[in-house]
Design a protein around this nucleic acid. Structure first.
Lengths: 224, 224
DNA sequence: CCGCCAAGTATACAAGTGTCTACATTGAGT
DNA sequence: ACTCAATGTAGACACTTGTATACTTGGCGG
């Protein structure tokens, strides 16, 4: 079985952008060369490099979205069975449990990152890349991820129920962006992975805790 | 008085990278054209585009570092005089005062961003750009900013004195990175500036609060 | 078996690029 | 007034790039 040329080109793009490069900086010829194809074959599948970028983003979203939800369920389960209601509480939510869910989620997330480094890198880079189209598409994808996460937070009761759903969504969006940002470091600095993962986890816990405390103190004022 | 060619080239680079473009994607000829100079003149001042990038980063750091410290003092003063010891307290630190310092700092920071958008954009973009040299230089600069901020946090007593200085440094680094990240949005979405500023402020407050609470609960475990 | 269409190829051209060598201008110090 | 170094310019060379036109291939439906 031979792979379709379209897929060959997409994979070539992933390979080439892996070394901190831009999609638009690739050039159709280079791309085709890497894919082992004739330059003009590119046009049989894509009209534009942005077009290819959109396809890549679609694939990334497909590989990210459902798996991430699944991951979070799994993390919650693992945290659940590890121990019941230990550690200090804060406003009726177990700090210990929240911490464990965060830990598991973050661990599994970074495992995922380590498994799909190229796609993640492409996504995070193009998030601030030169193409407005791709930026928009990626922001949309991240919004989706954040919404998923917010739903899970509510469902798994990681924050008190009375916290404004919109505030939760904002927290989720923040966490999502930061985790993606950090995954670049995670990929590029393999020798510091443990430390980066721990830092990310700490940040997530801090944001959760801060959101909780501020909410209880009536000081949470997230904008729409 | 005529400006030096070197400065002309640097300014041309800022102008061209302002539109979401990469330094390396510019091309020496384009750069010289924008600066109104002969292509070869570039080599009289820089050996490389990375070389120019380093010069730009140096200028950025000079324009950022001292002003930011000054800004923070000013913010603290303004918060001080606004009102003494109002609002709820948490572990001996006034929430109201901390919030005001954050508010003032963030406001002044984003004012600064609005005043130097091009330099900021270049910096944030190259932070994950294709050139390893520039990435390294920028990380160094950010480290410096974070260290400054940590010192100020301790000096202004925005966190309890007993919190580990290394933990403070990590929090500061986190905040610095995120503020810089957000300043891109701030620049590119002028119609949402108020909302972005408010969100950034909220995030900073959340991180502070979270760090404090976790520290008091003995749960703060930031890695080295 | 024919014909057709998608996928891939070959060749070509204009335009832009990095950078080399050689030349011109300036301006400050002696 | 003369020199010398710094700064800027001109022209050229070998490449790479995007893309247009025209050609080949291979497999599938009729």
């Amino acid at each position: 079985m031979t792979v379709s040329g379209k897929q060959l080109l997409l994979e070539a793009a992933l390979r080439l952008t892996a070394n901190n490069r831009n999609l638009k900086s690739l050039g159709i010829r280079e791309l085709a060369r890497e894919a082992g194809l004739n330059p003009n074959t590119f046009y049989r599948h894509f009209s534009d490099i942005d077009d290819l970028g959109l396809a890549a983003i679609d694939q990334l979203a497909a590989r990210l979205r459902q798996p991430l939800r699944h991951l979070r369920r799994e993390a919650a389960c693992r945290a659940e069975e590890a121990s019941h209601a230990d550690g200090p509480e804060l406003f009726g939510v177990s700090l210990g449990r929240g911490r464990k869910v965060c830990h598991q989620t973050v661990v599994l997330f970074f495992d995922f990152v380590a498994d799909n480094p190229q796609a993640i890198m492409l996504g995070v880079r193009e998030l601030q890349g030169p193409s407005a189209v791709l930026r928009k598409a990626l922001h949309l994808m991240i919004s989706g991820l954040a919404t998923d996460m917010a739903e899970d937070i509510i469902e798994l009761e990681l924050l008190p129920k009375r916290v404004d759903p919109q505030a939760i969504e904002q927290v989720a969006r923040l966490i999502t962006r930061n985790l993606l940002q950090m995954s670049l470091d995670y990929i590029n600095q393999p020798e510091q992975r443990d430390s980066i993962r721990a830092l990310a986890e700490e940040q997530v816990v801090m944001l959760f805790t801060g959101a909780m405390v501020l909410h209880e103190a009536g000081q949470l004022k997230l904008p729409v």
